[in-house]
Amino acid sequence: MTAGTISAPTIYYDQHFNTEAAKILPGEYYVTGRDMVIVTVLGSCVSACLRDPVSGIGGMNHFMLPENRQYDANPLALSARYGTHAMEVLINQILKAGGRRDRLEAKVFGGGQVLQGFIVSNVGEQNANFVRHFLEMEEIPIVAEDLLDIYPRKVYFFPRSGRVLMKKLRSVHNDTIVQREREYGSRLRHESVSGDVDLF
Rank of each mutant, 00 (worst) to 15 (best):
residue 108 V to D: 02
residue 137 M to K: 11
residue 128 A to E: 01
residue 98 G to F: 07
residue 109 F to D: 00
residue 8 A to D: 15
residue 111 G to S: 01
residue 64 M to L: 13
residue 2 T to C: 01
residue 60 M to T: 02
residue 9 P to I: 05
residue 158 F to A: 00
residue 42 L to C: 05
residue 17 F to Q: 05
residue 168 K to M: 15
residue 49 C to F: 07
residue 186 S to T: 07
residue 32 T to P: 03
residue 21 A to E: 05
residue 56 G to S: 05
residue 47 S to Y: 02
residue 164 V to Q: 02
residue 91 I to D: 01
residue 175 D to F: 12
residue 194 S to M: 11
residue 90 L to C: 07
residue 186 S to H: 14
residue 34 R to D: 12
residue 9 P to M: 12
residue 6 I to D: 10
residue 45 C to T: 15
residue 70 Q to G: 05
residue 149 D to M: 11
residue 101 R to I: 07
residue 33 G to S: 05
residue 123 V to Y: 10
residue 25 L to T: 09
residue 39 V to A: 11
residue 78 L to F: 12
residue 32 T to N: 01
residue 137 M to F: 09
residue 143 V to M: 03
residue 114 V to N: 02
residue 60 M to S: 08
residue 200 F to I: 09
residue 176 T to L: 14
residue 155 V to H: 02
residue 189 R to N: 14
residue 45 C to K: 03
residue 109 F to P: 00
residue 171 S to A: 13
residue 138 E to V: 03
residue 131 V to A: 06
residue 143 V to P: 04
residue 83 G to F: 04
residue 62 H to V: 06
residue 113 Q to V: 14
residue 35 D to K: 11
residue 105 E to D: 09
residue 115 L to M: 09
residue 166 M to N: 09
residue 2 T to E: 08
residue 46 V to G: 03
residue 15 Q to P: 05
residue 62 H to K: 08
residue 31 V to A: 01
residue 153 R to Q: 14
residue 72 D to C: 12
residue 76 L to I: 12
residue 18 N to T: 06
residue 13 Y to C: 08
residue 64 M to W: 08
residue 28 E to P: 05
residue 180 R to T: 10
residue 170 R to M: 12
residue 100 R to A: 15
residue 64 M to Y: 08
residue 8 A to W: 12
residue 15 Q to I: 02
residue 166 M to R: 12
residue 183 E to K: 13
residue 179 Q to L: 13
residue 65 L to D: 00
residue 103 R to I: 07
residue 182 R to F: 10
residue 44 S to R: 08
residue 140 I to Y: 13
residue 193 V to Q: 01
residue 29 Y to N: 09
residue 143 V to L: 04
residue 108 V to K: 02
residue 127 N to R: 06
residue 27 G to V: 06
residue 72 D to Y: 13
residue 174 N to S: 15
residue 181 E to I: 05
residue 29 Y to C: 09
residue 63 F to K: 03
residue 86 A to S: 11
residue 59 G to C: 10
residue 50 L to G: 10
residue 150 I to V: 15
residue 137 M to H: 09
residue 176 T to V: 15
residue 51 R to I: 03
residue 169 L to M: 05
residue 141 P to Q: 10
residue 14 D to W: 06
residue 92 N to W: 04
residue 97 A to T: 10
residue 183 E to W: 12
residue 60 M to Q: 09
residue 86 A to G: 07
residue 10 T to K: 15
residue 93 Q to I: 00
residue 93 Q to G: 04
residue 155 V to M: 02
residue 7 S to L: 08
residue 149 D to W: 08
residue 34 R to M: 06
residue 134 F to S: 03
residue 37 V to Y: 06
residue 159 P to T: 00
residue 143 V to Q: 02
residue 155 V to I: 11
residue 17 F to Y: 10
residue 19 T to R: 10
residue 121 S to F: 04
residue 133 H to A: 13
residue 87 M to D: 01
residue 195 G to N: 06
residue 158 F to D: 02
residue 163 R to V: 09
residue 98 G to Y: 08
residue 172 V to D: 05
residue 39 V to C: 05
